[in-house]
């Protein structure tokens, strides 16, 4: 399965170029406007009349999904008139919960019989994927998944299967999650927040610190190698086995899934982690996967934005001079299960 296009919406803007720019520029402080420091996506980033004229009622979650999916589609250069065999897989941890709460506001404020039907329809988890399908005119299978463990890895595995089965020629596959006041409150109460706003992926702590984020990251995935190619996914393993040493291992440690000590065991090659650029998210793997894809395509080992490294592992940076041919992306959930995505040039 080949990576033909990337679309990103995150705290520093929209598009793969914005993401690459962030990888080059390094860490920036999160915003401090809410209960906790967080990497929020601005309203300005989510304004695009050419895309939203068809979906004026779409909420923030849908806009992040649509913009990142649409950009991945355009970035691939695979624009066909007939999208019957374009599949869509959207995975999320929490879904469009701001709209759910807005619907509950209606129930509480106006009575159970007087809530807004528009809000209700937009609160359904698969509304965002439906909007993507409508805007792109894609008529292939369209699925939304909701996971706390491995949301991106399961979506990617399904995309790979659909392509191998011949069910689709291309699959737009990605993840979206949003922040709001309720989620920030839950994060504040249930997670340890980094007071200085810095996620430190290489501390490997049993009680790591987080800085929540939000955004969307989508990938156009193709059975055949396309003109625009970021790399090839050669395996997605849920057993934790890596089968061979990669040039670089990108890890998802970001303070969101508890004990991170096991990540230390993955550090037998050069290690990278880019969560300090986009924030702690259960869907953070999708953003690290985007970073890995760009590393393969551009043959650049981007400096890790927060390289604090007390255990002396080899952290990815400008001193990495070898060719980048093979990257493993590793996620460990609750110190129990490990998933590895293997990508090659």
């Amino acid at each position: 399965m080949f990576i033909s296009g990337i679309g990103i919406v995150f705290t520093r803007g929209r598009g793969v170029d914005s993401f690459e720019k962030a990888l080059k520029e390094g860490w920036r402080e999160p915003s401090w406007t809410g209960l906790i420091p967080a990497y929020r996506v601005s309203q300005e980033t989510l304004t695009d009349a050419s895309l939203t004229k068809k979906i004026r009622r779409a909420d923030k979650f849908t806009r992040m999904a649509l913009f990142s999916a649409f950009d991945a589609y355009v970035n691939s250069g695979i624009i066909t008139e007939n999208n019957e065999r374009l599949g869509i897989i959207l995975s999320t941890a929490f879904g469009p919960h701001s709209t759910t709460f807005s619907f509950i506001d209606d129930m509480l404020d106006y009575g159970y019989a007087n809530a807004s039907p528009t809000k209700f329809s937009n609160s359904v988890h698969n509304a965002a994927a439906s909007y993507v399908s409508s805007v792109l005119g894609s008529r292939g299978p369209t699925v939304t998944l909701a996971q706390f463990s491995f949301p991106f890895q399961n979506a990617l595995a399904l995309a790979d299967i659909w392509l191998n089965e011949g069910r689709c020629e291309h699959v737009l596959c990605g993840c979206v999650d949003e922040l709001n006041a309720v989620m920030e409150y839950a994060c504040k109460m249930k997670l340890k927040t980094a007071g200085d706003g810095k996620i430190r992926p290489f501390i490997f702590s049993s009680s790591p610190l987080s800085v929540p984020g939000e955004g969307g990251a989508f990938f156009m995935l193709s059975k055949e190698k396309c003109e625009n190619n970021y790399g090839e996914v050669t395996g997605i393993s849920f057993s934790g086995k890596t089968n061979g040493k990669p040039d670089i291992t990108v890890i998802d440690s970001d303070g969101m899934t508890g004990d991170e000590t096991l990540y230390r065991e993955t550090a037998d090659s050069t290690v990278a982690g880019y969560s300090p650029l986009f924030g702690s998210m259960l869907i953070g793997s999708a953003f690290n996967f985007a970073a890995a894809s760009l590393m393969l395509k551009n043959q650049v080992a981007y400096n890790c934005p927060v390289p604090d490294n007390p255990s002396g592992i080899k952290v990815c940076g400008s001193d990495f001079s070898a060719g980048i041919n093979k990257i493993n992306c590793v996620r460990i959930c609750r110190s129990e299960k490990t998933a590895v995505i293997k990508i090659i040039k």
Partner: peptide
């Protein structure tokens, strides 16, 4: 659940 019950009700 109350939320979809009210939601489907709101959709008529």
């Amino acid at each position: 659940n109350r939320v979809p019950f009210c939601g489907f009700g709101s959709l008529g």
